[in-house]
Nucleic acid binder design. Sequence first.
DNA 1: CTTACCGCCTGTCGGC
DNA 2: TGCCGACAGGCGGTAA
Length: 270
Amino acid sequence: MPELPEVETTRRGIAPHLEGQTVRSVSVRNGRLRWPVPEDLAVQLEGEVIRSVERRAKYLFLNLDSGSVIVHLGMSGSLRIITDDSAALTHDHVELVLHSGVRLRYNDPRRFGCWLWAPNPSTHPLIASLGPEPLAPEFNGAYLYRRSRGKSTAVKSFIMDGHVVVGVGNIYANEALFKAGIHSRRQAGRVSLSRYRRLVEVVQETLTAAILMGGTTLRDFVNSDGQPGYFAQSLLVYGRGGQPCPECQATLREIRMNQRTTIYCTRCQR
DNA sequence: CTTACCGCCTGTCGGC
DNA sequence: TGCCGACAGGCGGTAA
């Protein structure tokens, strides 16, 4: 389940192999992703130079002169750099071949991801209305406080809403709310400014630490036959329902909220 | 407008 | 051992 740190680590891993390179060919082995891969993707890309690889939220942009490829890894997607003649694996759905001989392979068993083409990605409907980046200065306590006034939805759903802030998936939402001592079911509009300040702090700490950890596994992006970008992370509460709280030893509760597994400590989180 | 739920997918796991 | 249903989840789409 690539969260934002995994996507950023992927970007850092693949960018040096792609930037400045000309696309020789594109092959789509299975175009039935979340949305169909555009029929003319190969036509758009062939002969063009990849100028840069950017990330916005959990989307990656391969920027060319005439537009950008928008890639999302969905639930189970991964990108890897191929420098030898190794054969494609099951679920290797899309492949870019560069003039340098290097290949970029996209593998996605569940096909929740996407490969789209946009002349200008920042105005694409998927991108245009996204909230701020979680590590950007405009994501701060005052911002969350202002955006949440009058909201009756649970604070956990609120911070997982990509129109509020991007990159906070289910795992990090659980972890951050635990660290901030905020009950996941509390109404977003009933969280104080100071507690939102604390929440932003722990979200940023957690994401930054995860990105730093990812940096040590960049070599895995070349000729890896495993799943690159998935890091052992020390999770305090996620996946630990029924176990003792790491802070107070009370039993961690596990519930479903908006179809998502939610874990919290009834004593530490209010 | 806001909020909650659906469904796209396949690999994994528990129960029988 | 093998089958089968439940579950996992990002996130756009849609219903209420």
